[in-house]
Nucleic acid binder design. Sequence first.
DNA 1: CTGCTCAACTTGTAGGGACAAGTTGATGAA
DNA 2: TTCATCAACTTGTCCCTACAAGTTGAGCAG
Lengths: 269, 269
Amino acid sequence: MYQQVERVSHDGGMSKQPKYRQVADALRREIDNGTYPPGARLPSESELSARFDASRNTVRSGLGLLVTQGLVTSSQGLGYEVAKHEVFELNASRFEDLSFPQNGDAYSTDVTNAGRRPHQTFRVEIHPAPDDVAERLKVEPGSRTVLRFCHRFVDDVPWSTQATYYPSWLVEEAPRLAEPGDIEQGTTRYLAEHGTEQVGYFDEISTRMPTPDEARRLEIGAGVPVLLWMRTGYSDQRPIRCTVTTFRGDLNRMNYEIGDQAGRENEPQ
Amino acid sequence: MYQQVERVSHDGGMSKQPKYRQVADALRREIDNGTYPPGARLPSESELSARFDASRNTVRSGLGLLVTQGLVTSSQGLGYEVAKHEVFELNASRFEDLSFPQNGDAYSTDVTNAGRRPHQTFRVEIHPAPDDVAERLKVEPGSRTVLRFCHRFVDDVPWSTQATYYPSWLVEEAPRLAEPGDIEQGTTRYLAEHGTEQVGYFDEISTRMPTPDEARRLEIGAGVPVLLWMRTGYSDQRPIRCTVTTFRGDLNRMNYEIGDQAGRENEPQ
DNA sequence: CTGCTCAACTTGTAGGGACAAGTTGATGAA
DNA sequence: TTCATCAACTTGTCCCTACAAGTTGAGCAG
């Protein structure tokens, strides 16, 4: 017959926290103070169960907290591992292409400069405009747009997905947007050569937990949010494109340089 | 005696997904298609248990997925509720204070303009510089800084925390930074009047799951990430302050206007 | 009517068991 | 040696029970 165990623990009486939280807190402290450095393996569930005098289920609840906070990952047969993140910096405030003689791909050059290996898959589709994109492009929801979609990897780790929508009126002026394959000089420059120059943009940045679909595409474990970046580019007349980028939140940081940056580059004193 | 039940379900054989995921996916679909609109209550665990022919634990696992994805919230005694989020837009690219005759507080005016009620608590401390802040301010880690800390609410809901660190050399030139209480004309303008004008800044934006501390201060439920915004302000000589803002990720979106915005304001056609 | 109690719900915590499935390294056969 | 097998670990899924704790509304005492 089952008997409810005494809930009061022997830690001095100031706890009141449920046991699975105590487990999580204790492990979090040990991760923070370096007992378990990034990449280290945690003790197994049964070891922790013995150490904390808790059932395996309770220990699992505690570990689950750490997993959903992104501090540790787990894999069947292997155990729990302290997560390590190297963030990748992304400068979002520089105007792309126009002033730089690069081949139209800021991502590849940025990653290569960081000593990492870029890789991307690319496809072009005709696609009805999603509501949020239609609103920003000032076209009817569901109207035809050209979608240029990019799935990006760094060292073969999924990094981000980027979807750029072009309104159909623009595709008539710049038909190569709808053709599969790269545009060597870069889309921004290609558009400028066809009479539509991007003179400004509006960026919106938000975050949330990934949808199951995003979690699959970006190979995101539990407890890692996505960073959402929506950029609407404008000519001096009207919106010309809308780019929706989804980043793994644990691997990316976005930067904006605004105003005079002289004070940032100087040495101290 | 316990008997493992037959794992194959009667949905045509294409499932393979564990049962708790099937529960989560089914409920997610029904949330997406409006069966359970934002604010609605989900069936209770025992009802779902009957509907899916699963144990309460299994149903709880499925609901737990939705909670950690931020789609639903749960509270003891009340049940599960579909989360509703109204995001608050924050324009981060305008230079504060200098050109506007406001009383130094972009937050209060932004919130009031949105028809919401702002509220904030404020305190000033002498605090050793955290490593990341020290690096950006180009001072020794742990050296004395003045910390001006702000805890902000909208309609009494915790919204964000903001910590601005000023290096000690700057406080000697502008002593009121270290005094508690508001600076009516705004700190940026106050600094300009004392010979230190902020001419540029560098913004870094990232996201992660909240620490238990942040979750408590911002009253964040499970499954809601935080949006981290770190702004380092510069004079033409050197860094003058570093502001670390922590937002509830489900309630905030950051915007940047860069370049000419004429095309954004125009009407279509 | 007001205000209190309490039953009947809800979710939260904690324990138990059994078996599935992934990983690793030792062992033994070829 | 090389390769397949398998035992012994790991976490993953699923079930059961029991009780704690928060919420609500019915119903009763005053």
